[in-house]
Simulated assay, not measured.
Amino acid sequence: MSISIDPPPEHHEPLVPDRVKVSPALEVSKRPNPFQRVAHLWQYRELIGNLTRKELKVKYKNSILGFAWSLLNPLMYLVVFSLVFNIISDVHVPYYGIFFLSGLLAWNFFSAGLGSGTSSIVQNAQLVTKVWFPREALVLASVFTALVHFFLQSIVLLAALLVFRRMPDPTYIPVFLLALVVIMLLGTALAVGLSAVNVYLRDTQHLLEVVLLAWFWLSAIAYPYGSIVTHLNNTRYAGKEWILNLNPMITVVIAFQRTLYNPDYSNKEEAAVLPNHPMSWYLTYLSIDAVVAIVLLFGALALFSRLEDNFAEAI
């Protein structure tokens, strides 16, 4: 008896159907590049606005004073530092309150946005693990929340300017605006990168607090920048003021002070607070800081893209 064997079929259907053909949504997507991530954030701009409003509401929920707490923070700093530097120490700056608040505004915006942005992914673990959206939106919401507090705290400085009848320098408004942009870019760049690292290394947010404390004292906020320049010129680094501006926050702080404090250079004491640099000097250094911050931002987005795949498991 002969046994006939049929030839094998030319084409075998796979035992497991192609997931992509069944549902294209199951296709493994490639990591978006930084430009695509920026485009995604623009598409989700309404979500960023909603997250910002949520943060503002949650921060002062069930609080009697509410947003007034934003005003008390710079007032307390003002009282403490005025006592230390105007009474206890030998540092004398005319209208110290206005000088100090001018720099403190810039610093509070930067440190608040960076601090809350770094911990934003971890603190919103429920959203990250349940709903898909550009995770960087949480970081941006933290930065925009800090921007709202910046404008609220500006009320304290405006009141001080009215009381002491001092006017900001209107010709330096472009310098002030560029400095504000630098804070936004630099704070966002560092927050995006550190927020991703913080998911895996929770010590990041605690280490940042220590770094920000040291950074504050290195940024000529509570003491005049002019005294640092004078000291530098008495060393072998005389004429190399650019070394100080390697710290981008120094440039930002003195740009705020030059615009808002607006020293009277006919007054010897006020002239010693800030060197009488032309506007082009400020614009040059701030432009360099802005370019560096943009490069850091795209690098942070690339790092965020590499680390976000396992956010849900790590959180």
Score class of each variant (00 low, 15 high):
Phe99Ile: 08
Val128Gly: 08
Arg135Phe: 11
Phe85Leu: 04
Glu136Pro: 04
Leu105Val: 04
Phe100Gly: 03
Ser111Tyr: 08
Arg135Gln: 03
Gly103Met: 13
Val131Ala: 01
Val122Arg: 12
Val122Phe: 14
Gln126Leu: 07
Val93Pro: 15
Tyr95Met: 14
Asn86Lys: 11
Ser89Phe: 12
Asn86Asp: 03
Ser119Arg: 04
Ser119Trp: 08
Ser89Gln: 11
Gly115Trp: 06
Leu138His: 09
Ser119Asn: 05
Leu104Met: 04
Glu136Ser: 01
Tyr95Asn: 14
Phe133Tyr: 09
His92Leu: 15
Ser89Ile: 14
Leu83Gln: 14
Ala125His: 10
Leu101Asp: 06
Ile88Trp: 00
Pro134Met: 12
Val84Asp: 13
Ala112Arg: 09
Glu136Asp: 10
Trp132Tyr: 15
Leu104Ser: 03
Tyr95Phe: 10
Phe85His: 08
Leu138Ser: 00
Gly103Ile: 09
Asn108Phe: 12
Gly117Gln: 03
Val122Ala: 14
Pro134Lys: 08
Phe100Ser: 08
Phe100Thr: 02
Val91Trp: 01
Ser116Glu: 07
Ile121Cys: 04
Leu138Thr: 09
Pro134Phe: 13
Ile87Met: 04
Leu127Tyr: 13
Ile88Ser: 00
Val128Phe: 13
Gly117Asp: 00
Phe109Asp: 00
Phe85Tyr: 01
Asn108Gln: 05
Asn86Gly: 01
Phe109His: 04
Ser120Tyr: 06
Phe133Cys: 03
Trp132Asn: 13
Ser102Arg: 01
Gly113Cys: 02
Leu127Glu: 05
Ser102Leu: 12
Gln123Trp: 04
Ser89Gly: 13
Val84Ser: 11
Lys130Val: 05
Tyr96Asn: 01
Ala125Ile: 09
Lys130Leu: 10
Glu136Leu: 05
Phe99Arg: 08
Ser116Thr: 13
Pro134Tyr: 03
Val131Asp: 08
Leu114Lys: 02
Gly97Ser: 08
Ser102Met: 12
Leu104Thr: 03
Phe110Gln: 02
Gly117Lys: 06
Val122Ile: 08
Asp90His: 13
Leu114Asp: 00
Ala106Cys: 11
Ile88Cys: 02
Asn108Gly: 08
Phe99Glu: 09
Val128Lys: 06
Glu136Arg: 04
Asn108Leu: 00
Ser119Gly: 11
Leu105Pro: 02
Glu136Cys: 01
Val91Ile: 15
Leu138Met: 14
Glu136His: 01
Asn124Arg: 07
Ser89Pro: 01
Leu138Asp: 06
Leu138Gly: 03
Lys130Tyr: 14
Leu83Trp: 10
Ile87Leu: 15
Phe110Asn: 05
Gly115Glu: 01
Phe133Met: 09
Val84Gly: 13
